[in-house]
Design a binder for these strands. Structure first.
Length: 658
RNA sequence: GGCGGCGUAGCUUAGUUGGUUAUAGCGUGCGGUUCAUACCCGCAAGGUCGUAGGUUCGAAUCCCACCGCCGCUACCA
């Protein structure tokens, strides 16, 4: 029997996951179930990523230890996974002791063999937040989290030599064209990272404590990706000193890592390189799926539009929600979720097509034959076109699974039910029932329907595990295994329940929206409670309006030093389209200021012009040139028109603007 | 700004070695049916295939330009 190891990304325990997060788990679950159905020996692993500064902070705010905090969240997550009927074989937590131990060993090994070295992390440091930011992360040259001043700082840190393995990585990409799916992601990685030269990755932190300690240098904590990514091997019982479990030996490398498109980079660059350094085989495939968007926008608590699996499942049922997300998300694109969309889709596919088919078939079997039918072999031409669809379904579904086109696989299954509904119309059982002479033909027709439903439902099981078992029970048959899923006529006799339970009741959109609104109000209320008076405006403004900046007092404003200056020289910055390097005379001093105005102004246009300069702005390097200040401009967001701001009258350089 | 992708019916979307009348689902309209969860089946309407050029006997498909949207990334102070 062949082994198949599939993983999801591990969920970050900073809060309750929303429907978009759990989509990935449902997707992986249906793949894992299908592989088991095909006879593979499957290990399906999921779990939680529990370290990091953010969690440390959240715990502190709640007056808990980080461990208490993650224990709570992890159990919420596990509960959700269970509610969604996720058939994981292994649920790993990065706080599990065997994981922590191996991460420490791995870190030490990589350090000893020289892949990890000690250096300095240079960046902009925000003291109150205790965090480092890169130049590009800064907002207005300030801390993106709290908006306060940052200063250049150095922190001792460990780095991983990425570039050492770049060639080998590219080689692997080339020899495994399906390694990264969808293919567009691969090009992004090559163009943006690998071809431009890989930067060494910082793999330790000293700015917070909640993580796995570097055991030979306890000031340091292993940085998140080295910690989190290794879960894929530690979960199988990997041991750095060659005492790995049998499970690891049999199941590594993973056949498939299912992840969100936002973390592709970590899985197709850093993770393979870590594995190379450990001298382990690389995973066969990494699939970066799209996102579920709430009516086209990202979910946000402050808008009250975050959809949670349990809320949805309470309205539609867990299987119906699974059906919706699996059907909605394509292979490459993002998908849409929303209460109205879900109601419509579930009504049309599950209630009308599938549920109603089961219902009418059972009703007729009871009405005409007291609930028992067998194959009387009174065959007509129409039967064959029904059978053809049913018998071919399995191969089609399997092919779609191989291509990871899961929503297409689902459509192939539904083709059976659609064909069966048509078959009823073609055969008109209620007409046959009027003539005793047609009894055998009528029974054959109903038998064919029961058999088609049995096969279709067996295939549907990997998508909707619980409802499908209910249906099979209603027909008093077992799930048809893959070994004879193509044998139409396998069942000798059907003996159906006398009263078919309604599997998927039709839902009224208005009723659903009423419930949705209640949930939304509750969510907003909770959000406001958590965040007190903050961001109230965000809640009421549904449409994106230009962000109004906060009112500042005079004192804050007067911190900004503005002066009149004259541009005495200006030249284009080599290799840049937008930037001009200007020399500005401000009173006695002259400064170099780089500005993004080259689209509007040529150097000759502005030499000699007077401008207003922010003179106490932290210097910043742009395209390698140190820019000491900022020249004020008016800017039209829509037209991208731009104009320098000058004093109306010729003025003395160096004068203050206030 | 760089690299990549996309733009097809009201909505979601199929469609490359260029080749009769350009898919399919939802929604809409009409008809049929009554076993069924007012469901199912059939038919129809609806498209200048983003815009404007070019190559060709022939372009949704290939080429060029432009407009719009998206992804990654960057020097957007």
């Amino acid at each position: 029997m062949k082994n198949y190891y599939i993983t999801t990304a591990i969920a970050y325990t900073s809060g309750k996951p929303h429907i978009g997060n759990i989509y990935e788990i449902i997707l992986s679950d249906s793949i894992a179930r299908f592989k088991r159905y095909q006879g593979y020996n499957v290990i399906f692993q999921t779990g939680t990523d529990e370290h990091g500064q953010k969690i440390e902070e959240k715990a502190t705010n709640k007056g808990q230890t980080p461990k208490q905090f993650v224990d709570e969240v992890a159990s919420v997550i596990k509960g959700l996974w269970d509610k969604a009927n996720i058939s994981y074989d292994k649920f790993i937590r990065t706080t599990d002791d065997y994981h922590e131990k191996q991460v420490q060993k791995i870190f030490k090994k990589l350090f000893k063999q020289g892949d990890i070295y000690k250096g300095h992390y240079e960046g902009w440091y925000c003291t109150p937040c205790e965090s480092f930011w890169t130049e590009s992360q800064l907002v207005d040259g300030k801390c993106p989290d709290c908006g306060r001043e940052v200063k250049k700082a150095k922190e001792e840190a460990y780095f991983f030599k990425m570039s050492k393995y770049a060639d080998k990585l590219v080689e692997y990409y080339n020899s495994h064209p399906d390694f990264i799916l969808p293919i567009s992601r691969k090009n992004e990685m090559l163009n943006n990272f690998i071809n431009k030269g890989l930067q060494d990755l910082c793999v330790s932190r000293t700015s917070f404590k909640w993580g796995i300690t570097v055991d030979f240098d306890s000031k340091h904590v292993v940085y998140v990706w080295l910690d989190a990514l290794t879960n894929y091997i530690t979960g199988l019982g990997y041991d750095e000193s060659a005492n790995s479990d049998e499970k690891f030996k049999n199941f590594w490398p993973a056949v498939l890592h299912v992840i969100g498109k936002d973390i592709v980079r970590f899985h197709v660059i850093y993770w393979p390189i870590f594995l190379m350094a450990l001298n382990l085989p690389l995973p066969k495939q990494v699939y970066g799926h799209g996102w579920l968007l709430q009516d086209g926008e990202k979910m946000s608590k402050s808008k009250g539009n975050v959809l949670y699996f349990d809320d949805l499942a309470n309205v539609f049922g867990a299987d119906a929600v699974r059906y919706y997300v699996l059907n909605e998300m394509g292979f490459e694109d993002d998908g849409l979720v929303g209460w109205e969309l879900m109601t419509e889709k579930i009504n049309s596919d599950l209630a009308n097509i599938y549920g109603n088919l089961v219902s009418r078939t059972i009703a007729m079997t009871n009405k005409y034959f007291g609930g028992k039918v067998e194959n009387k072999n009174k065959v007509e031409d129409v039967d064959n076109s029904l059978k053809e669809v049913v018998v071919n379904a399995y191969d089609k579904v399997a092919k779609k699974f191989d291509e990871l086109k899961i929503s297409d696989a689902l459509s192939e299954v539904f083709a059976i039910f659609k064909r069966a509904n048509k078959y009823i119309d073609e055969t008109c059982p209620w007409v046959l029932a009027k003539d005793e002479n047609n009894a055998d033909r009528l029974q054959t027709v109903l038998y064919n329907l029961c058999e088609a439903i049995t096969i279709g439902t067996s295939l549907l099981n990997v998508f909707m595990p619980s409802t499908t078992l209910k249906v099979l029970k209603m027909f008093n048959v077992d799930l048809r295994p893959s070994t004879n899923i193509k044998n139409f006529g396998e069942t000798k006799q059907f003996s159906v329940v006398s009263n078919a339970e309604v599997l998927f009741p039709r839902l009224d959109v208005k009723e659903v929206l009423k419930t949705a609104d209640e949930i939304k109000q509750k969510q907003i209320a909770e959000f406001l409670k958590e965040n007190k008076q903050e961001v109230k405006t965000e809640v009421t403004n549904k449409k994106e309006e230009p962000v109004k900046k906060d009112i500042i007092d005079f004192e804050t404003f007067s911190k900004v030093e503005l002066k009149v200056g004259t541009i005495i020289n200006s030249e284009a910055v080599e290799g840049s389209v937008k930037l001009l390097k200007n020399t500005v005379k401000i009173g006695e001093e002259t400064r170099t200021i780089v500005s993004g105005i080259a689209k509007t102004y040529k150097p000759a246009d502005i030499i000699g012009k007077q401008v207003v300069v922010v003179t106490n702005l932290a210097p910043r390097k742009l395209k390698g040139i140190l820019s000491e200040g900022m020249i004020l401009c008016a800017f039209d967001e829509e037209t991208e028109d731009l104009s320098l701001i000058s004093p109306i009258a010729k003025f003395k350089d160096g004068c203050e603007v206030s």
